[in-house]
Design a protein around this nucleic acid. Structure first.
Lengths: 242, 242
DNA sequence: TGATCATTTGTACGATAGTACAAATATGGT
DNA sequence: ACCATATTTGTACTATCGTACAAATGATCA
């Protein structure tokens, strides 16, 4: 039915689909990032794109190939943007300001895509969040070979701004940052619900600010080793914890 | 386990041999929490449990019903444990200690299940993480009606310990906590990888400590509204020192 | 225009999905 | 031991999955 309507329209106005390949990519990105990879069928994507299932096979060979292409499309611009912002952040003199700039350089490109239109970055990061949960094998390889370099660069930069914090703790806290970022994009309505309407989880700008502030504070916290010893003094009557 | 209905008619299901039912539940929990709900078939579960596909239908009617039962099995004990720990935490005098105890009361039950075997809590929380990403409708209802109460209670308790922080910020930061918790359980190997082996992402005990410390620090951070003005002061002070 | 190549369509195939259901079997009360 | 019922098994039905492939259609250029 959709196909028929589209066909009729194209005949009447002679407005062909400019690029079916792009339409399929856009539809797949939207559907995958909303329902997950496994829950979306090739036919769903084709229908949403106004295309034929066979076209998907033609352009991307397999469903995994389609996912791969989506990643290829976004990873480059996003990590390039991150590198730029990170380089700029490194040049900030004030240590406190520099740390915040570094965190912002990591978070910002996840919300604003450098290549696509409105919400492109958010959509792709939501997709990454879902894929990391579903544990797709194709994605795992891309992540390891594309994002780990970036992550290492950020950990190093943060470590420079916080020399007294062990690298291990910085890794943990950066990991928490990514988890918080993912979760916010996956279930933004939860924030609205829990705050009883006083906060809007879908407000990307506000989410970034909250996330940056919380992360900077967590990064500056005393590392565990010092914490435990400092804590031991007052913590005696609680539990016989090892 | 042998619950007997008091002389009721045929409908009372007295489970004489809980083995198979339990085996199916355990297998489903393990598979769902590893590969996601959509990627696992009823036949996979049956085979892993050493059962017949028909048995799954008999005991749980549908695949969704099986998922529902897994949630029912864990939600009660976990939230009860949380309430206990939260009540104890509220009685802590020192505000700093109290805040940490509250956060710990939220995190701890997610790792250690009160009802099941070793790793039961971790497994179930991993399942929750995956389900929140996949966006299953059945689960969404349970979450909203079971976990939001608990979440509200924790936000309130935290707000009592940090009266000067607006509730909205506490909601955001608690949200980040849950995201970090989920992500750590879903991809623990990433921590090991990024830390180049100096940290073990699967070490639940250590993960808890890192998470609690980071979260407490983030909760204590100046709220966003005040951030700008507070920042001005330190900037001026820093200028004066140099 | 007609030939050539790229793309889209339509359809089909084998595999697997969730679930239903009758037959077979195990179990507990009397 | 017998019966009633709870459970397990085996199987089949329908729907949908990813993908392949030939035919139809569109576009490009000599």
């Amino acid at each position: 039915m959709v196909r028929k309507a589209a066909k009729a329209e194209s005949k009447a106005a002679s407005t062909r689909k400019p690029n079916m390949r792009e339409a399929i990519l856009a539809a797949a990105e939207e559907l995958f990032s909303t329902y997950g990879f496994n829950a979306v069928s090739v036919r769903d994507i084709a229908q949403a794109a106004g295309a034929n299932p066979g076209s998907v096979t033609y352009h991307f060979k397999t469903k995994d190939g389609l996912l791969l292409e989506i990643y290829r499309r976004h990873c480059g611009p996003m990590n390039r943007r991150r590198s730029e912002l990170l380089a700029a952040a490194r040049r900030v003199r004030d240590l406190q300001d520099r740390l915040e700039a570094i965190v912002r350089a990591y978070v910002l490109p996840a919300f604003t895509s450098g290549s696509d239109l409105a919400g492109g970055g958010t959509r792709f990061t939501r997709l990454r969040a879902i894929m990391s949960a579903e544990g797709n094998e194709v994605v795992r390889k891309i992540i390891a070979q594309t994002f780990d370099d970036t992550s290492h660069a950020f950990v190093d930069a943060i470590h420079e701004s916080l020399p007294h914090i062990p690298r291990t703790d910085i890794v943990w806290r950066s990991h928490f940052l990514l988890g918080a970022l993912y979760y916010t994009l996956v279930t933004p309505e939860r924030v609205s619900r829990l705050s009883r309407g006083s906060a809007d989880g879908t407000d990307a700008g506000h989410a970034i600010e909250e996330l940056v502030r919380a992360t900077v504070a967590s990064l500056q916290a005393a590392p565990l080793d010092q914490a435990v010893t400092a804590r031991r003094k007052t913590l005696v009557a609680a539990k016989g914890e090892r």
